[in-house]
Amino acid sequence: MLELRLVQGSLLKKVLEAIKDLVNDANFDCSATGFSLQAMDSSHVALVALLLRSEGFEHYRCDRNLSMGMNLNNMSKMLKCAGNDDIITIKADDGSDTVTFMFESPNQDKIADFEMKLMDIDSEHLGIPEAEYQAIVRMPSSEFARICKDLSSIGDTVVISVTKEGVKFSTRGDIGTANVVCRQNTTVDKPEEATVIEMQEPVSLTFALRYMNSFTKATPLSGTVTISLSSDLPIVVEYKIAEMGYIRFYLAPKIED
């Protein structure tokens, strides 16, 4: 038996919007720790890891570890039927081939339930080791989204370089080149407007902008984004989900042949 009640149902709606274009089908894993997902995109160059900790749910019952295969497009269709202020409850019985999403309006005057078919997904689970990164950049998520969008109108790839001067995003295409430099800036009114750069050593890596733009669909989940870079590791683009967990995107770099 599984029953997870999430008062801030809009979080789950936003999570689905953030990942449904990157991954088609995925197993949601439910354990005492929380509700999680790890899935690769179909070309095996990007990975999404989601964790919604059990403490973040108003009610969290998960009698045994359960993995539920879902088509994310179908799940998104169902969650779009929930109001932004609705409380969402996810329910499943042991051995069942369906999951139920229950939506309650804030004043309890409307209750809806949507039952979705589960699917068997043979997914590869990857072991992601803890790593020390050469550079970690924290910046406003809207700023990062803006830069990725702007650069993708010029080129297909972005070079992200971190030096003591700041973080530079560069691209080139048929019509020309573009460079955006963000310097460390901690003298701001609100902490989420700061750009903070922790650099152990300079690093420069190249990534496909198409994936970066896809990751920025998580922008509504968090005011800030944390970008971790090392020359011998995939980039990690992390959006913290307030008091609940995170959504992390990993992307393998492009390298010179």
Binding site: M40, S43, H44, V45, A46, L47, E124, H125, L126, G127, I128, P129, T157, T206, A208, D232, L233, P234, Y250, A252, P253, K254, I255, E256, D257
Partner: peptide, 14 residues
């Protein structure tokens, strides 16, 4: 020429 690396180069498939 830039080539795209796969994640399996970095992460272990469990």
């Amino acid at each position: 020429i830039l080539i795209q690396v796969y994640l399996s180069i970095y992460f272990l498939i469990l």
